[in-house]
């Protein structure tokens, strides 16, 4: 049976009537109308659906929407403020870290969680920080560079 739930996404409250078996990714995309988080593999191995919940990067495809109630959910849509890109977004743009852009939201969310926890990561720490975000276009070089520059 559908339940009415409230989710706090990017600081705003959203209500949705959902069945318990819905994942956070489905609810964000289909009910909340935020399609920035992507479904790339369904099974937790690509990172395209990465969002930040209570400060930690997690996979929305393996998170039950009901479990996300009462938590602070940040998605890619929540990073730019007042029409200005977040420094990570800006550097992903400026350093050519975005090609097809499908892995980008997830990669940026992982990078944000990394820098929030460890503002001055080494290159090895950056590589590990985005190791759960598969990218098929860039070979990661420019993604790593963009994160490195942001941390400087």
């Amino acid at each position: 049976m559908k339940q009415l739930i409230e989710l706090k996404v990017n600081g705003e409250s959203y209500e949705a009537a959902i069945d318990p078996h819905r994942t956070l990714l489905e609810v964000l995309r289909e009910n909340v109308g935020m399609t920035g988080s992507k479904e790339g593999c369904d099974l937790g191995a690509c990172g395209a659906c990465t969002v930040i919940i209570d400060g930690k990067a997690v996979l929305a495809c393996l998170t039950l929407a009901l479990d996300a109630r009462g938590k602070e959910i940040t998605t890619i849509e929540g990073l730019a403020k007042d029409g200005k890109l977040h420094p990570l977004q800006q550097n992903f743009v400026d350093y050519g870290a975005i090609q097809c852009g499908f892995c980008t939201p997830g990669a940026i969310m992982s990078a944000k969680a990394l820098l929030d926890e460890n503002p001055k990561p080494t290159v090895a720490e950056i590589k590990r920080g985005v190791s759960g975000n598969l990218c098929r276009c860039t070979g990661y070089t420019k993604i790593i560079e963009a994160i490195e520059v942001t941390a400087k």
């Binding site: 990172g47 990067a57 997690v58 393996l62 992982s110 990394l114």
Partner: peptide
């Protein structure tokens, strides 16, 4: 284990 996201979860 796995990836940062999966370790967080």
């Amino acid at each position: 284990i796995a990836s940062p996201q999966l370790r967080n979860m």
